[in-house]
């Protein structure tokens, strides 16, 4: 006859540990399943479709969604195992604990940020490429790639910052590049920007419209088209394409007769 009472009492720690493990594994599995369902329901699968991360995942016979779900399950499993070990006091966890608690979240966060940035970068590359498909310049393919790597770069900076690596030089270089690009773009597109600002006024207030006869800087004719950047004025056989900032600077004369 086994004395269940004493057996349970003497081995209480171990039974508790087993219970913790069982509950942990069941909970982990369920969390993973629910997570997968939720991720699919909010359309993550469609969002990552076609990205290289998803393609890589596919090559290993899985998908991003199930990988993320699996990952959440594993976190719960690991927590359960650590808890079970703590309950049984088989290992002295304190040494491990400090390290893990101190460093693990940062590592996990850095990994998550990096993985997420690859996903977002890929998606951004696809979206930008689709937007630019109508532009028939072969070199335009550089822009989507640049967008992707900019996103990954920023994420890498964040991840490194999490891990406590000094990123200041990288940050300085990055800032310099971005600043240079912005200044360059501003100078290069100065006329376009002023034209667009003037064009917004012309389009919204319509001081002149299609069909009106106007004169801008010696060019007189009938307005054929007004868009954000230019006004097209036509007289017999000549079409003047006048940037809107010229219209603003010189003013337009409406000819009425």
């Amino acid at each position: 006859m086994v004395d269940w009472r004493t057996l349970v009492l003497t081995n209480f720690d171990y039974l508790l540990a087993i219970a913790v493990l069982v509950v942990g594994f069941v909970a982990g599995y369920l969390v993973g399943r629910v997570n997968e369902r939720v991720l699919r329901a909010i359309g993550v699968q469609d969002a990552v479709e076609g990205t290289s991360v998803e393609r890589t995942a596919r090559r290993f016979g899985t998908s991003v969604v199930s990988l993320i779900a699996r990952f959440t399950s594993w976190i719960v499993y690991v927590v359960a195992i650590v808890l079970a070990l703590a309950v049984t006091r088989l290992v002295d966890l304190r040494a491990l604990w400090y390290r893990v608690v101190g460093y693990a979240p940062a590592v996990a966060f850095a990994a998550a940020v990096l993985a997420f940035s690859f996903l977002v970068g890929d998606k951004a590359e696809i979206v930008v490429a689709e937007r630019l498909r109508g532009v028939k310049i072969p070199e335009i393919g550089v822009i989507p790639v640049a967008v992707k790597y900019a996103i990954v770069f920023v994420a890498a900076l964040v991840a490194l910052g999490q891990l406590g690596v000094a990123t200041l030089p990288l940050l300085v270089v990055f800032t310099a590049v971005v600043f240079g690009a912005v200044v360059f773009a501003l100078i290069a597109t100065k006329d376009l920007l002023t034209s667009a600002a003037a064009g917004a006024y012309v389009l919204l207030n319509q001081p002149y419209g299609i069909g009106d006869e106007i004169r801008v800087a010696e060019n007189q004719g009938i307005v054929q088209e007004v868009d954000l950047f230019v006004t097209r004025v036509e007289n017999d056989g000549e079409e003047f394409i006048i940037p809107n900032h010229v219209v603003m600077r010189n003013g337009a004369v409406r000819v009425r007769n």
């Binding site: 299609i210 069909g211 006869e213 009938i222 307005v223 054929q224 088209e225 036509e234």
Partner: peptide, 8 residues
């Protein structure tokens, strides 16, 4: 097309 002229 040629809206300016058409309008006139």
């Amino acid at each position: 097309g040629d809206a300016g002229k058409v309008m006139n």
